[in-house]
Amino acid sequence: MNEEVFQKKIDSEQKIEPKDWMPDGYRKHLIRQISQHAHSEVIGMQPEGKWITRAPSLRAKMILLAKVQDEAGHGLYLYSACETLGITREELNEQLHQGKAKYSSIFNYPTLTWADMGAIGWLVDGAAIINQVSLQKTSYGPYSRGMIRICKEESFHQRQGYEIMTQMTQGTAEQKEMAQDALNRFWWPSIMMFGPHDADSPRTGNAMKWKIKRKTNDELRQNFIDKTVGQADLIGLKIPDPDLKWNEERGSYDFGEVDWDEFWNVVNGNGPCNKQRLNHHRKAHKDGEWVRDAIKAYAEKHK
């Protein structure tokens, strides 16, 4: 009975709010998806954070710091949404530290040059935005509201990345080389960000039925590629996919197959930086423990 009422609500595009009845599977799926998203924002601070202190101009430094700070903010919006489902941020952190919760694999790749700041903003944020825009219409109210806020703020992120790439392609030969190299390294990992093919993604069915996800992995991936190819052409960069070709009939680009072995390898913890990223987060958490204890003790004394 409950389930029927719930599904009817979903089907008629009504939002589900924290106190509404929801199937266990719906709650679990949301917690997994939102926390994964939150952790991705927070872990995602690290590869770019490294370059804040190395940004080559005052302007670039300001922009990058503000951008990475936004990622912390977006992590918080998402943890805040996740907490409405009856789980604490402490528990979510614990799951991350124990390796039980995932985050986007893209952040397990190293950032080697300044051009990587361009590639991350342009491609990684670009891919994230495609996903987030569709999630603004997700069926869970707090998640949807968080996504709307994030999308509003995130729009500058992709632009700052593309601006860096443009600058690099218009610069010295070395800079242009760095830009192409960054695209070569980040292209496929960005394509992988949309996750496995729909056919290999067992949870997609429920997620679509419950309208947690509004578009499938493959739809979003195609959308991203169609948007990005022209942008690469415009600044004279070559996308590292020999099979990339405009398909007149479909009105979309055909593209090559992702190396799914690499994908699962990185997802399962064997990417170049998995350990480093988690250790960094664990260390920051542990180093801050005495500080968190102190504010609790102070609050207790000054009630």
Binding site: M45, M62, L65, H280, A284, E289, V291, R292
Partner: peptide, 28 residues
């Protein structure tokens, strides 16, 4: 700015970045 991603809470990470950005603007 070196604190970014290392704060004792995520809230404080943001606060330190805000202060750093104010100072960077002034330095500029």
């Amino acid at each position: 700015s070196e604190w970014c991603s290392k704060g004792p809470t995520l809230e404080e990470d943001i606060a330190l970045a805000n202060i750093s950005l104010d100072l960077l603007g002034r330095a500029n």
